[in-house]
Write a protein that binds this DNA or RNA. Sequence first.
DNA 1: TTAGAATATCGTAAAATTACGATATATGGA
DNA 2: TCCATATATCGTAATTTTACGATATTCTAA
Lengths: 109, 109
Amino acid sequence: MKLEQTQLPPEACCTLDIAGMEQERLVTMFKALGNPTRFEIMKYLLTHPGCITGDIVDYLPIAQATVSQHLKVLRQAGWIEGTISGTATNYGLNDKNITWFRKKVGEIF
Amino acid sequence: MKLEQTQLPPEACCTLDIAGMEQERLVTMFKALGNPTRFEIMKYLLTHPGCITGDIVDYLPIAQATVSQHLKVLRQAGWIEGTISGTATNYGLNDKNITWFRKKVGEIF
DNA sequence: TTAGAATATCGTAAAATTACGATATATGGA
DNA sequence: TCCATATATCGTAATTTTACGATATTCTAA
């Protein structure tokens, strides 16, 4: 049982330039890549520019509905973006957000 | 219903230097930070060197057991390390792994 | 206009995560 | 030794995530 502080907590040595909505955004990006299947999808997109959903479905051993769901998570997290092209959807990297992520990771850690 | 490929999938433009156990490790690190509470703990550790578990418990509005559980996840993922000091445990950054993470993120994205 | 294709969404079962109180463990001091 | 402190672990309820089949939507071509 804890009644009082024996010792004062340490002072802050510095501050971090991340908070609020930005922090939520960053956590969401971490979470999205914290899944093996989604990481694999990102790897595929990184190495196969100009691919469509079906290419990923063929590549991975999981159902089309599941791939679509994972793509949605990656899109909403800001890792990728999809552009409709006829009946297909081309998926590619969201370069702006990826750059932002790298910048923030560099600043924080 | 999908019967056959209308168009061949795109060729790989490059390869990525991440696979197997290394990839699992990286995904685990992403997953660990993909939680708002754990991200907050990491922020605290980054800005308060030399702190112990109790400091984090006092700082956050969650139960001691929950903090301990999150610290375990962060430790097992390789973000932090704890050193026992009397009855307390000092937590600090796992600099080696953090550097590795930044390096990999830089290489991949 | 109708059929098929490519993809998204819905509903749902199973698994994993999160948070908690209770309890266990280990250390240091009286 | 005995007690209090600091932390870890256990058991569990509630929530979230994951994956699937079924179905809906959208576009193209015949």
